[in-house]
Design a protein around this nucleic acid. Sequence first.
DNA 1: GTGAAAGCGCTAACAC
DNA 2: GTGTTAGCGCTTTCAC
Lengths: 329, 329
Amino acid sequence: MATIYEVARLAGVSPATVSRVFNGVGVSEEKTQAVREAARQLKFTPNRTARTLRKQESEVIALVIPDIENPYFTELARGVEDVAQKAGYSVVLCNTDSQIEKEATYLQIAISEHMAGVILAAASDHTNLDELLAAGRPVVAVDRGTGYDIDGVVMANRPAGQAATENLVQAGYRRIACITGPQEIETAYERAQGWRAVIARNFPDADPDELLRYSSFRVDGGREVMEELLTLPEPPDAIVAGNNLLGVGAIQVLTEHGLTPPKIGVAVVGSLPFTTLSPTAVTVVRLPARHMGVTAARMLLERIAGDDQPARTVVLRNEVQPARALNGA
Amino acid sequence: MATIYEVARLAGVSPATVSRVFNGVGVSEEKTQAVREAARQLKFTPNRTARTLRKQESEVIALVIPDIENPYFTELARGVEDVAQKAGYSVVLCNTDSQIEKEATYLQIAISEHMAGVILAAASDHTNLDELLAAGRPVVAVDRGTGYDIDGVVMANRPAGQAATENLVQAGYRRIACITGPQEIETAYERAQGWRAVIARNFPDADPDELLRYSSFRVDGGREVMEELLTLPEPPDAIVAGNNLLGVGAIQVLTEHGLTPPKIGVAVVGSLPFTTLSPTAVTVVRLPARHMGVTAARMLLERIAGDDQPARTVVLRNEVQPARALNGA
DNA sequence: GTGAAAGCGCTAACAC
DNA sequence: GTGTTAGCGCTTTCAC
């Protein structure tokens, strides 16, 4: 690999001039040409490591997410990547598997590689950002809060849970269960709160705890809890699923029992990009994951550029796509 | 951020000794203790950038894939990550969107960040690896070849296409179409060749070109081509889908037309992790994507460690999971 | 076993 | 506008 010294010698200029050419500072036209020609001949690629060491900052941002196999997070990643790449940043995708230790490791790496910033969907509410923040690295929270006073972008989770449930009520279902993710995860909790509010308003005699189930935010979690609900003395006639994977798991079990929607009502908070159902059978509350990524990346880039206004939180509205078969559209 | 110099001063040793402690070279027990204690007090984190600059190699490997939203590739990524992390490497996930320019950019970054190696699912057969290889960086090809004489791990694509098709033949279907990815992509081509061989053997009078469609390896590609096949004067009674997303698209369209499998035969090359169909309705030829990632990562780590045996190619066998409803199991 | 010192490739004062 | 030079934090000879 050629260095700026070799390019400088070939072009008949100083190393500093070569550096200036590649950083867009004022250099005369003729020297610029000479440098570019020399660089081309030597196949010169600037050494980013040296640059990072010198500048104490790299053009890399970390995107830390709990589950890379969840399409919701890959859609988010696309949004981040699209914005970052246009700004000349590359994105390092870090999968924590919801484990705080793995998360801590990646956060440490972000510091020690001098990454420009971090976009974080926290594995839990115990994430420690002290060092990262002390090192002056901007962090934007996505999907979930962190307990720190930093920028964030989240979904309107409670309204999403409400919308899903209301849709089912209007379609005539009367015994609507809810399956959601781990209680400690705020998205899971809030969506369930949305469901709870609608149930309380419409069925004041119902016992919500009988029909609410916490599980993992995964397909097998949905399957397990759905099986359980089906064995109830009086099983539900409809289900609100707290995220996409839970919805997939629940629908799989229902299908296996011959209860294909809309025989039983199903509303899912989150999109189902790879579902093979009739698009009219299930109510979907779309979550704008890509948009969340785009917004978070833009906020982060502003912080990297030095913006120091007070922390902002953006709440993204969802969009309901009702099951057509149920509401007659 | 504390440096080794500060740690050295506090511990009463030289910077070199601090470095040795953190790199597992022989240092006396008492100095080791002193260094560790000083490091703890100062919250010292080794600066990876400086280390990389000095050693000319980082503990990062790049995984370059064409579509991060495809569950097949995220499953692959999991395999890579699990192996890499255990060996102390972190994985940078780079999404090329099948564009050679984006791919070239990421490959350039891999060089200029001194990454330890690259695992590459090439965007096309025009990928240029000259510089990367000249820089001495090991590259392992996954899923598809590259035209270079390097390590690789691929699926048994032709047998997979054959198995999918044979399954449909045995189930009694007689007019079996095939939809696959872009002709230039070897996986798409080979799977179609498998289909073609079975068709030629069983239905010598059939005109394969009438029933074969090339498309993109995406859901909307599958939708589009499926719609088209349905308008044929004599539509197919079964479909072989060349990958998971194509299968999802095809099944969606069929469902919308009331042709839920197994009313029409469907066999998919690739797993359908988020399907909501009855598990008995569709034949799935499972592709061990995670295993591919694990294998590729292990091979890469061997190369990074200096192994210089001739290039190897590993071919992974697939596993057929037949549609139970069709073969009576 | 341990320390002194050079240098990885780049950028940013600072002089001119 | 351009060159000289110091130094980012680490590893690694080379002495001792």
